[in-house]
Design a protein around this nucleic acid. Structure first.
Length: 639
RNA sequence: GCCCUCGUAGCUCAGGGGUAGAGCACUCCAUUGGUAAUGGAGAGGUCGACAGUUCGAAUCUGUCCGAGGGCACCA
């Protein structure tokens, strides 16, 4: 007798072992048809796997809108993709194929590279397999049998996977049609249950087991959803994201460009640079208010300093080197060693601490060519960097002040969804365990005291100390790591920084490395995508355009522009011999927030017609009133 | 760095072994038009770079550079 308790508390009893399918059939034919899997005491099981003891169970159907169903569908889609590939190219080797966010992938090994046509062929075959309604059978195999089987059919990667499984691991295989695959499961009862709301998206290379020394496999990415409607919504979402890609908008809005003579380094155009400077000036104001001093240090520094700091040893392959007169210089990849040099000038007292030293530091790092990505990952960039030299007992308050400042800055850009990750001691590190204990708890206590939640990221700290990473989520749900706070007990000592304490003795300060925006290039890119190019007035590089409707209004248009500029607003005048329709269209497409139109009526009345981006109509306003309200609206947050 | 794809006019793209095409932008002419494209004419390219195959290469092959998508990397 097996008693199965349903989520509503009711109990169904069976004479012997019963499967989820039996249970669903017992409840009703509708459920029997809709059932995809069964949850048994919290674990997801195949629908046809016998349940032999009393358990709390729940039938899983498409209506369950948590990730469970999507994972099931996507995992099955991966298997069906593998089956399709095996049918099309019998000599292909299958490896792994998990469910991932928004879809699935499968890694294959095959001498011939896949072509886009192959992708279509695989997708077509997948639809056929779904229609075949192949049953999925679960089987438990002996390890040696499994290894022999997969070796026997030439699936060496599978055999390797099994060999590497822990000795006590139950080895399960699933068979659908003629295709048998090693898999933990669970799966849908048959291929038909997947439905047709899937699509193969792209081809990519991927290292076997994620190790760059290993063979490069061919990965096929796909997406799968409960319904065509969900699939189309997803495809639409991707299209929308592509429209606001900062590389696309950067070109369209004439903000910046890249060219091969300086790969990974941006050429900023007037409008882009205006935006960049707005961001920098905003940050400068915030730092000034928060008690930072700003400095500027050299970009080209002798290797001796980098040897002393440890960068020559740890970071050499990322550094651009230049040689003159038997001396070797490196373009700085980081600002910290230079900041210590400034700190070391003159004798420092405990009264000088905490000393918050900021620099919009221009850094260069040789990033692998494949890592470059628009403004988001570049080789030349500027950090809103600062180093706080302080005593150990000041770490807590400095951490709190920093977190508050960072959150306040992010909020000014509309980012309120900020995750904090705490990374503790890595395997390879400098400093004693005692120092690490102290640094970790100081940093952790400080975040807790400041009232912020964080997740642990074990072993990912910097070699000199633990760190906090700040990850923000943008308007379309993507995550970006921008801010960081790192507690450093190593560099100040290595580079000979010291201060005189209350006891008249020399002490070594602690150094907090910190950045809020991270890199100005990257943050600008994030802002372009966040706002889809439609910047709030204070950031918009071109805040207004004054358009003359007839040439008789040209002088007045120039007068209006001059007054607006005198009030501190940024903008141009458009006196072209074109119709107002064309001007409105072009400036709207250029995402200019404010279009001021003046014709004969305005010349006579002295008023202006103001049209805001995104609105259909316009307002007739007194020029002074219009200017006053635009000036108010374009004020930098926090001023 | 690795795998796949791509590189044609300022931009978006078509074409494809016999020395190049569209739309928009640009220049000129006409038009002074009230809120998302006025009409006409003209000019514009060493087809990413370098080799090779060929009577002939933008087209085929190779190498390199760059870009896009992934993987690896991101102290």
């Amino acid at each position: 007798m097996v008693a199965l308790t349903l989520p509503d508390g009711s109990v169904r009893e069976f004479d012997g072992a019963a499967s989820g399918a039996d249970l669903a059939a017992d409840i009703g034919p509708g459920l029997a048809k809709a059932a995809l899997a069964v949850r048994v005491d919290g674990n997801l099981w195949d629908l046809h796997r016998p349940i032999e003891t009393d358990a709390a169970v729940a039938i899983v159907t498409l209506k369950d809108d948590d990730e469970t169903v999507l994972n099931l569908l996507r995992h099955d889609a991966a298997h069906i993709l593998a089956e399709a590939a095996k049918e099309l190219w019998p000599d292909i080797q299958v490896t792994i194929g998990p469910s991932i966010e928004n879809g699935f992938y499968y890694d294959f090994s095959r001498a011939e590279p896949f072509t886009p046509d192959d992708l279509d062929a695989m997708e077509k075959r997948m639809h056929e397999i779904v229609n075949r309604d192949e049953k999925l059978e679960r089987d438990v195999w002996e390890r040696s049998k499994a290894i022999d089987y997969f070796k026997g059919i030439g699936e060496h990667y599978k055999a390797e996977l099994i060999s590497d499984l822990p000795g006590d691991e139950v080895i399960t295989v699933y068979t659908q049609g003629d295709f048998t695959d090693l898999c933990l499961g669970p799966h849908l009862p048959s291929t038909k249950k997947l439905g047709h709301a899937f699509k193969l998206m792209k081809l990519a290379g991927a290292y076997w087991r994620g190790k760059s020394d290993n063979e490069m496999l061919q990965r096929v990415y796909g997406t799968a959803w409960r319904s065509e409607k969900e699939l189309n919504a997803y495809l639409l979402r991707i299209e929308e994201a592509e429209k606001r890609d900062h590389r696309k908008l950067g070109k369209e809005m004439d903000l910046f460009h890249f060219q091969e003579e300086a790969a990974g380094m941006a050429f900023w155009h007037p409008k882009g640079w205006t935006l960049y400077r707005s961001l920098e000036n905003y940050m400068r104001l915030r730092l000034d208010t928060a008690g930072y001093v700003e400095i500027k240090t050299p970009q080209l520094v002798d290797r001796m300093l980098w040897e002393a700091s440890g960068h020559w040893e740890k970071y050499r392959e990322h550094m651009y080197i230049s040689e003159f007169e038997d001396r070797v210089y490196a373009l700085k990849p980081m600002n910290c060693p230079c900041h210590v040099q400034v700190f070391r000038q003159g004798l420092k007292s405990y009264r000088d601490l905490p000393l918050r030293m900021a620099e919009f530091g221009s850094c260069h790092r040789y990033e692998p060519s494949g890592a470059l990505h628009g403004l988001m990952r570049v080789r030349g960039f500027v950090q809103d960097d600062a180093h706080i030299f302080c005593r150990e007992d000041q770490i807590a308050s400095e951490t709190k002040d920093f977190c508050d400042l960072l959150m306040s800055v992010y909020k000014d850009f509309g980012f309120t969804d900020v995750a904090i990750k705490f990374s503790d001691r890595p395997e390879v590190r400098a400093g004693t365990d005692e120092v690490w204990d102290q640094a970790e708890s100081a940093l952790k206590d400080a975040v807790i005291a400041a009232g912020y939640e964080f997740e642990l990221n074990p072993g990912d700290g910097a070699f000199y100390g633990p760190k906090l990473d700040f990850v923000l989520t943008d308007a379309i749900g993507r995550e970006w790591q921008c801010g960081t706070l790192q507690a450093d007990f190593v560099l100040p000592e290595r580079l000979g920084a010291s201060y005189i304490g209350e006891d008249s003795q020399k002490h070594t300060p602690v150094m907090l490395h910190r950045a809020i925006l991270g890199s100005l290039e990257r943050f600008t890119g994030i802002l372009i995508e966040e706002y889809a190019g439609k910047f709030p007035l204070w950031l918009a590089p071109q805040q207004f355009v004054v358009c003359a409707i007839v040439s008789d209004a040209d002088d007045f248009a120039l007068e209006v522009q001059a007054k607006m500029k005198a009030a501190g607003l940024r903008g141009d005048v458009d006196l072209r011999n074109e119709k107002i329709n064309l001007k409105v269209r072009e400036h709207s497409l250029a995402k200019v927030p404010v279009i001021v139109a003046v014709g004969r009526q305005e010349v006579e009345s002295g008023k202006v017609a103001v049209r805001r981006l995104g609105e259909k109509g316009q307002q007739i306003l007194d020029l002074d009133d219009a200017i006053a309200s635009l000036v108010e609206e374009s004020r930098i947050p926090g001023t």
